[in-house]
Amino acid sequence: MTFTQRHLLGIEPLHPTEITALLDLADQYVDLNRSASKHSDALAGLTQINMFFENSTRTQASFELAGKRLGADVMNMAMQTSSTKKGETLIDTALTLNAMHPDLLVVRHPQSGAVDLLAQKVNCAVLNAGDGKHEHPTQAMLDALTIRRAKGRLHRLRIAICGDIAHSRVARSNILLLGKMENRVRLVGPPTLIPSGMSEFGVEVFHDMAEGIQDADVVMMLRLQKERMDGGFIPSEREYYHRYGLDAEKLALAAPDAIVMHPGPMNRGVEIDGDIADDINRSVIQEQVEMGVAVRMAAMDLLARNHKARPREVEV
């Protein structure tokens, strides 16, 4: 089986073989990106529109570069300054853009489910670049590719996801993906930052970091948003760092060859010690950024192929 999706809205609808197919293609694009010419014509003649209703530098740059390396015409729309401010609804924006015949729409939106809603109204392939607290599928894919290349496999690994799970779409997509690939996923964080019903997802929940990262093969740290630090969810930044920040002492409890990941941007000294983030023997944070471009190239390539094979007109 190969990749059969028309959109990449989340990890939830994907079959494990689709995840593998995407990662296999991404591996090839890693090689391309490391070569001298860095160019392919896979998306030549196609139009990619990046619609970001929420600020992003890294993800947007990664998608833009991925499209350009595959020969697509890439347009960035900063939706925060556009007509949505003038009261235009998301549906109207979608219909307007649809009339311009894009082939790939990359969308980030602050509300969960907004990208699904938009995908129902357009003819082209839609890629979710993060919707609210719901999913961020390309981030989970790039994390998976990083793990697979570092560990040589993407199954039967002990993976600890640590920090603010409650507000993280990265965590949700990773839990789904790593679960589908049959890994043992642990969630580590204060109870106020673990969403309810998590134990029903087939994961183990730990509130004690030492227990949670014991013998872990992968330690995945999450960003703690500044606005959540004071009093609301945790007592203080320094208490959080003491209990849940990744330092050498805590990392020593993980497997000796454990890798450290972070989706960025990092708060050094809040969720992660600066020395660990920079330790090239443990940290794969820079590799994650590199894999991001390759995974997005693979995702857009596969979706474009599916749309070429089975064009569709949606009722709008």
Binding site: S112, G113, G132, K133, H134, P195, S196, G197, M198, F201
Partner: peptide, 15 residues
């Protein structure tokens, strides 16, 4: 309503 479904969909939920 808080629980597995709301967590999966990333929706603001209350107990």
């Amino acid at each position: 309503t808080s629980g597995k479904f709301a967590s999966l969909r990333g929706l603001p939920a209350a107990s």
